[in-house]
Amino acid sequence: MLKGLHHTAIICSDYARSKAFYAELLGLEIISEQYREARQSWKLDLALPDGSQLELFSFPGAPPRPSYPEAQGLRHLAFAVESVETVAHWLNEKGIATEQVRIDELTGKAFTFFRDPDGLPLELYECE
């Protein structure tokens, strides 16, 4: 049956800004990048260290996210990190605001949220 998460797709409003955020700032490796003329759309495949991928798309005229963060559909995307405090501090130094680090009452693990250039909620979740 299911073996794991292969990829998550994100439609961005400003392709160049989102590409810089995910590839340059967060350091995700670019696997491939194509411009699809028929759709007037860019598609960027990015690799995470665990083998999963992010796909970034640009579609002309795509509607904005209806609300933050409680719209139906994908609520947020969570990244596993060794130290939430360390990564949150690093993001803050790069000008990316993070919420206060909290502790998950069910697991005892630290977590926090930040946003991508389109306001998509992203989470840092502490994993050993």
Score class of each variant (00 low, 15 high):
Gly61Ser: 10
Asp118Arg: 13
Ser41Tyr: 00
Ala16Pro: 07
Glu99Ile: 08
Pro63Ile: 10
Gly119Lys: 05
Val101Pro: 00
Val87Lys: 08
Glu55Cys: 05
Glu29Cys: 00
Leu26Phe: 04
Lys109Leu: 08
Leu91Trp: 03
Thr112Gln: 03
Leu122Pro: 06
Glu55Asp: 07
Thr112Asp: 09
Phe113His: 10
Thr8Glu: 09
Val87Cys: 02
Ser13Val: 14
Leu25Gly: 07
Thr107Lys: 10
Val87Leu: 11
Glu128Asn: 12
Pro121Met: 15
Trp42Asp: 04
Ala80Gln: 10
Thr86Tyr: 12
Cys127Tyr: 10
Leu28Met: 03
Glu128Gln: 14
Tyr22His: 00
Arg102Cys: 11
Glu82Trp: 04
Glu29His: 00
Tyr68Ile: 14
Ile103Pro: 01
Gly95Trp: 07
Tyr22Lys: 01
Glu128Val: 12
Pro64Thr: 09
Pro69Ser: 07
Lys3Tyr: 14
Arg39Cys: 06
Glu99Lys: 11
Pro63Phe: 15
Pro117His: 14
Thr86Met: 07
Leu91Ala: 02
Glu93Arg: 12
Leu91His: 06
Ala9Leu: 04
His76Asp: 11
Phe111Val: 05
Arg65Ser: 14
Met1Asn: 15
Arg75Ile: 07
Tyr15Asp: 14
Asp45Gln: 08
Gly108Ala: 08
Leu74Ala: 13
Leu56Ser: 09
Ile11Phe: 13
Ser83Asp: 09
Glu123Asn: 03
Glu126Cys: 07
Ala16Gly: 07
Glu55Val: 02
Ala47Cys: 10
Glu128Leu: 13
Ala97Thr: 14
Ala23Asn: 06
Gln72Gly: 15
Glu55Leu: 04
Ala62Cys: 08
Asn92Ile: 05
Gly119His: 10
Leu26Lys: 03
Pro121Lys: 09
Gly51Ala: 09
Phe113Cys: 05
Glu105Gly: 08
Pro69Ile: 13
Leu5Phe: 02
Ala23Met: 06
Gly73Trp: 09
Ala71Asp: 15
Leu46Met: 04
Ile10Pro: 01
Ile103Gln: 08
Leu124Asp: 10
Gly95Gln: 02
Leu2Ala: 06
Ala78Met: 09
Gly119Cys: 15
Tyr125Val: 08
Glu105Ser: 13
Thr107Met: 11
Ala9Glu: 12
His6Tyr: 12
Gly4Asp: 09
Glu82Asn: 05
Pro63Asp: 10
Gly51Asp: 02
Lys19Ile: 01
Arg65Phe: 12
Ala16Gln: 13
Arg65Thr: 15
Leu46Arg: 00
Ala71Asn: 14
Ile31Thr: 02
Glu37Trp: 04
Gly119Asp: 11
Tyr35Cys: 04
Ala80Pro: 03
Glu128Tyr: 10
Gln53Ile: 00
Tyr35Thr: 06
Leu77Glu: 05
Ile96Arg: 10
Tyr35Ser: 03
Phe113Tyr: 13
Ser83Asn: 07
Gly119Phe: 06
Asn92Ala: 09
Glu33Met: 01
Thr8Ile: 14
Ile11Asn: 15
Ala16Trp: 08
Phe79Cys: 01
Trp90Pro: 00
Leu48Asn: 01
Gln53Lys: 03
Val87Ile: 08
Arg39Asn: 05
Ile30Asn: 04
Gln34Asp: 11
Glu99Gln: 12
Gln100Glu: 15
Ile10Thr: 05
Ser52His: 02
Leu28His: 00
Glu82Val: 05
Gln34Tyr: 01
Arg75Cys: 07
Arg102Gln: 14
Gln34Pro: 02
